[in-house]
Amino acid sequence: MDAHVQTIDLNAYYGAIPALKNVNLEIPKNQITVIMGPSGCGKTTLLKTINRFLELTDGTRISGKVLIDGEDIYGQGVDVTEIRKKAGLLAQRPYPLPMSIYENVAYGLRIHNMKHGRELDQAVEHHLREAGLWEEVKDRLRSPATGLSIGQQQRLCLARGLAVEPELLLGDEPTSALDPISAQHIEQRLLDLKNEYTIVLVTHILRQAKRLADYVVFMYLGEVVESGPARQVFESPQQERTRAYLEGQF
């Protein structure tokens, strides 16, 4: 298996409380990896270690390694903004930036000084298409992003994340705030995108996991109980706790 992200003896703490315990994982390239488990099991914490978001919370601590393409992202001299550029994020709720639709997508490109003028316009269009939003907003690119419906906003956030050309796409229950149709929209996008990006998705919806996952990680109380190809885990779980969870006993 071709591992894109790898964690080695990863531990995370909120103050003195451990949130992740000795996590050793390999996340395969260009597949959808779904991290599932009951709430409070550390799945969002694990996701946050991959784009170094955990350190934004006061009092958090980490030990162990997280490698992206074999490089330790917590190593010396690593530029955190480069890491975050590499790993796009789709949050629980869409947070459009307080600017126009166009500027939202162009934001990362401008920050990283990647594209200008005509090229920028093309990039914005390309990524809005990628997120399946172009047809709906092409006539009002200059209007504020907050005017979009919440489902459209989430796709805008997807376009914004894709614009800086990440390798990874991290989704933290990205459909939990959306209506069923918008959620379906996002899921379809993710399936379309998995050939080009490595996607890591946190969800507590079992059916969503089954619909999307190529590779599954099951967590419980900060530990990885079981991980493996989706079919294997769903059809013949090796661990008792995984089986119990899949049967809905949590």
Partner: peptide, 18 residues
């Protein structure tokens, strides 16, 4: 200001000052 908004910007690789 909701933290999610800050994180939305940090997530595309903006520095804190940006």
């Amino acid at each position: 200001v909701p933290n999610g908004l800050r994180q939305a910007s940090l997530a595309v690789g903006a520095t804190q000052w940006e």
